[in-house]
Design a protein around this nucleic acid. Structure first.
Lengths: 326, 326
DNA sequence: TCAAACTGATTAAACGATTTACCCCGGCGG
DNA sequence: CCGCCGGGGTAAATCGTTTAATCAGTTTGA
């Protein structure tokens, strides 16, 4: 049996209240008693039981993490970052995914609330609006979403990759994403378009809408670089390119987003952009703990995406170029 | 404010005890009162508060999920399956990862216990032994690990892929994994070796130990198929193969494991094997809930791995072969 | 010198649900 | 007629922790 507060109190011949006060630094306890209590507490390996504490304080010391889809390849890094950050802040993480459908997200949120989480970290489904909730919450979506708490600077990332391609002499680009319906992908493409320099042109395509052929046609008309909104899209395009006899990066440059697990391993290794998940995770957690503990909460944050140049956008004179600091 | 048990009791002019009894079917309550209570309960949208219940019953209705590394690409499917199963069983899932080091696993377990989880699902770090714990736990490792509760039949999977390759006429194979230190990978390779047919030969290699060159040499000596222990390993080998001018599948067949997100998208699409994560997840949860609720717990389970034949092991006469039922 | 303030600690009342022990009442067998 | 039983229900204890209220001494201030 785990030691209770009362066990320490009995062992020391004092009241449970004093023990509680000593351990949490509230109330009035002599320094000497406080010390004795601490000593006895960790001699017995005492940890306050979560149930009793939660009941009394109304706080469960748990955060809910709601994800659109646990099997999204981008998720693990986010979850890991959030879990680690919240752990150091003294909170546990309950997870739930939205089961694919929109109603699932509401349900997931409802379940978390029933379990008594103190706050929620929500990565919303595409274009979902989160109504007002009875607990603080942090939204990780895109900077362009109202109410967003923290997210990668997708737009800035788009700008960065276009500049990168421009530096390498590409002036006719294909911008291609998976689906127009994703705010993240739209932001990335918007950032790309915005920073097209003088004399640069770009065709936009979506895989959903026969993007591959649009892309190949554009290349036929002289495009020399393909900037995608995701490593997965880049990988999907690579096959058809090979079949059409188009070499990457010799004839056409190719870039992705997110640095998924295969990006560094595939051939050619894929140039991509990635945001620091830890930064995103800690800002989300910091925002929530600030609210929970009554501190002023930080303003929304836009985490920059950094370029990881690899072989797929290497200059023709230097086709073996690998990751270099940018 | 959420409605409490007492609110229902007051509204109906009965005692909280009767309400509790009515809702949970314990004690003695007239059918008529039970009905009135239920009606009022869901009129108010009442849900028992977790803190009070946990304090009284000693059960938190939460399970801890401990993973070696949240960023492992195989994890999301497992986590998703486990989360969904446990949800239908009425349990929430707290996650924690082992932070990479071995001590981290102990720590993670300790944290979960402190948070009062009712049971643990543990995917242990390579070769870690889990000592006795104060709560029930399910281990998801390999069938060859003592104490294992449920896992994919890695050995059977190895056998399956070798038979598949044999059917396609390959008799000289390279078996290659990442690291000899992983029980999972060892099991897969063991299964492969065991079912080498008459006249078949195989060279084993590990990426860690300069496996790529061993592999290329073996091909030089006439090997016509490479069976890897992971899609990621397969992808890593594909580059060097291309550079050496070896075509897949025309000259050499290639297979992976786990059907990672890129396996169906890469070129050639990768033949691979995968176990039903839902089956694994539900068996783990079923085992734990059985123990928790005093039912007889099911025996350990070995979930079969099913083959997903794709282009990378296609017959030369049919190079465009895609996913077909097996 | 007396009251006010402070110190160190204790008591007791929460928090919300569950459960044990008991009470009351009507019917029934003896 | 009495004791017993079973059905319907309730009061009260309990789980472990926090905290407001209180108390007995000691100082301090005027």
């Amino acid at each position: 049996m785990q030691p209770k507060l009362k066990d320490i109190a009995n062992a020391l011949g004092v009241s449970p209240a004093s023990v509680s006060n000593a351990l949490r630094g509230t109330g009035r306890v002599s320094a000497e008693l406080a010390e004795r209590v601490r000593a006895e507490a960790d001699r017995l390996g005492y940890r306050p039981g979560p149930a009793g504490r939660a009941l009394r304080t109304g706080r469960s010391q748990m955060l809910g993490l709601i994800l659109p889809d646990l099997s999204n390849p981008l998720f693990p890094r986010m979850a890991q970052a959030i879990q680690r950050q919240s752990e150091t802040a003294g909170y546990g993480i309950l997870i739930a995914d939205s089961h694919g459908d929109r109603g699932g997200q509401e349900e997931a949120i409802a379940r978390m609330l029933q379990r008594g989480v103190d706050a929620l970290v929500i990565i919303p489904r595409r274009g979902t609006v989160i109504e007002t909730l009875p607990v603080p919450h942090a939204l990780i979506d895109t900077p362009s979403t109202p109410g967003n708490t923290v997210s990668a600077d997708h737009r800035g990332g788009g700008a960065t990759i276009v500049r990168h391609l421009a530096e390498r002499g590409h002036s006719s680009l294909v911008l291609i994403g998976d689906s127009d319906a994703s705010p993240v992908q739209r932001d990335r493409i918007a950032g790309m378009r915005e920073s097209l320099g003088e004399g640069m042109t770009a065709t936009t395509a979506w895989l959903e809408e026969d993007g591959i052929s649009t892309c190949l046609e554009a290349i036929g008309r002289g495009a020399t670089a393909i900037a995608t909104t995701s490593d997965l899209v880049a990988l999907q395009i690579l096959g058809p390119l090979n079949e059409a006899g188009i070499e990457v990066p010799e004839q056409v440059a190719l870039s992705g987003f997110d640095d998924l697990v295969f990006a560094s391993v595939m051939r050619p290794a894929l140039t991509t952009l990635v945001a620091d998940s830890n930064a995103i995770g800690s800002h989300a957690i910091e925002t929530l703990t600030a609210i929970l503990e009554g501190r002023p909460s930080p303003p929304p944050m836009r985490v920059p995406m950094t370029l990881i140049p690899r072989a797929s956008t290497a200059l023709k004179t230097n086709p073996r170029q690998e990751t270099i600091p940018c």
